[in-house]
Amino acid sequence: MTRLPAVLLVLAALICASLTVGAASISILDATRDPQAALVLLESRLPRTLAVVLTGAALAVAGVVLQALVRNRFVGPETTGTAESAALGLLAVTILAPSAPIWAKMGAASLAAMAGTAIFILIIRRLPVREVMLVPIAGLVLSGVLGSVATFVGFQTDLLQYVNSWLMAGEFSGVIAGRYEQLWVAAIAAGLAWFAADRFAILGLGDGVASGLGLSPDAVMRLGLAVVAVVTALVITTVGLIPFVGLVVPNIVARIMGDNLRASIPVVALWGAVLLLGCDLAGRLIRYPYEIPVGMVLGIVGAAIFLWLLYRRPAHG
């Protein structure tokens, strides 16, 4: 059921396409002889392609972990206040310690994202279990509140441009070598989630089952929150908010493979990369040589997929 080889082939084809498509008309096959082509390839095309692949994979994995933690399929890192809290943390460190090194800023953003997601989980624990649709609604409300606080603070401190670059539709046109490498950390965090996949799947069965099997639900929750927070924080600070990847990819894979996360996380990661790279390529080709931000392409494609998912399976949460 996994069809891993097929997904790998699709991804490889997309990567090749991504390396050849761009405003500069060069032939990457000449890269070994033509220094201009080599420069474009190594400084722009390859970093951009890697950034898209890492982001798509990490966000999709963060989504599947988040959905196991909250036991609800209709949430993603962009609808639970995670991204907005990361932006608030980054804003705080930019105002209070503008000269802090980059890793300190990323750390602050991750910690804030973790705190914001923890608040979301505290809120939804008070909701009636059977009302599955209240969970995403609560997440959207929390995202809205945190986002408006970030906008207000950004407006007051003349940092609105920064806030917008984090929370508006993300895009990869600014990615060059040296400005995307943090995404490797996001990918490593997502890889860590794979090692703990059984724990997340067991926690998805309920705190009682997890305790009975000798797990500490709180410890698994903290680990999951850390993964989701680090991935989200690093993605929004590097390329901006990427919607729908963390929401729809886990849903599609769960329909086919179920919630055995140890088997499904690699597939989720690959599909995340395929979806994002496909949308990024579309954004680059539709108005060639101009670009449409991938966040906008995903907004349309992702919404269509999500609506289809909602109508296909209304009964289950």
Partner: peptide, 22 residues
């Protein structure tokens, strides 16, 4: 708790949690 899990197994009442496991 992991030692207890080798000594006793507990099954609570099932709630509405719909995990998609085989």
């Amino acid at each position: 708790t992991e030692t207890l899990a080798l000594q006793m197994a507990i099954l609570g009442q099932q709630t509405a949690i719909a995990s998609r496991l085989r």
